[in-house]
Nucleic acid binder design. Structure first.
Lengths: 154, 154
DNA sequence: TACAATATTGTAATCATTACAAATAAAGAG
DNA sequence: CTCTTTATTTGTAATGATTACAATATTGTA
């Protein structure tokens, strides 16, 4: 099965109508696992889809994000946040109250065969989800609707 | 010793002239470990320093970053990058070639007492430094100048 | 005091992203 | 097939955080 077909299948499985643009953007992401930006995707597909608009790339990626077909690389807040604690430590971002919590990561000992010979200068660990307070505040909702899902592949 | 004094000391230790503005910004960061944004710092200090300019906050934080007095929270690229691999995995950013490498994080098993009861929905691991290729290409430089430093607290 | 170096400020530019409304294409009903 | 509705795509303009830059103010030193 070629990439175009895989893309169509993936789209259908996620209840996204497989328009040409969507197929191409998804196929590009699948065949070019270089963590591309909107600009890169746009430039790469322009020859094949001359009428393509950058807005469409944004829209399509937002749709893919919502359907969890793609993930953003990095932890993107609107504004930069600064930390006077320069020790290596983890950050937990609560998507409800939008607070950032610190946690210790000393016990995280990693052997990363893929990075053998790499010069690792900084290690960052970011978790996200719902903090204890916000879980309690929304306990009633949690039981009823889909707003709070159980842990996924964590 | 109060916070102002600690701030002065920290600045001097890092060869930064302890101007009033710098003292206040650093003291704010030390006493408010809430990972503030430029806007937050600016708004908080405006009553005390009515002539404060937001540009100064930016400049000062850039200086602090350069002297490693503060760290940015999150992994900030100029543009968003997208990944069609939605499995949890780590990313390594090479600051020389600016490529992003994937690595497996399955063996990272974490027990985080600080996050007990938190609903963890996503785990992200970001390393940065210099990749193998770029280290090799710059071997000659690596021995001579300060461009490539050894690992720090990793 | 006077000079030079450093800090701070305000305005304007930049640039990724978003909002929004118009244009186009596709699907469904008759 | 044709009309009507809905979904998709597009282009332009706005937003908002950050940066560039030149002007002003402050500090340290002779």
């Amino acid at each position: 099965m070629n990439v175009l077909d895989s893309a169509v299948k993936l789209l259908q499985e996620n209840e996204i109508r497989p328009s040409l643009t969507r197929i191409h953007i998804l196929a590009y992401l699948l065949t070019n696992p270089v963590h591309p930006t909107v600009e890169q995707i746009y430039q790469a597909l322009l020859p094949q889809i001359p009428t393509l608009s950058k807005t469409t790339v944004y829209n399509t990626l937002d749709l893919f994000l919502a359907k969890k077909l793609v993930k953003p690389v990095g932890v993107e807040y609107k504004e930069k946040h600064y930390d006077a604690n320069t020790q290596n430590h983890g950050h937990f971002f609560c998507r409800v109250c939008e607070k950032i919590f610190d946690f210790d990561t000393h016990y995280i000992e990693t052997e990363t065969p893929e990075l053998k010979g790499f010069q690792i200068e900084a290690k960052n660990v970011y978790y996200s989800g719902v903090c204890l307070d916000c879980r309690h505040k929304n306990k009633h909702k949690e039981d009823k609707n889909e707003k709070f899902e159980g842990n996924q592949d964590c």
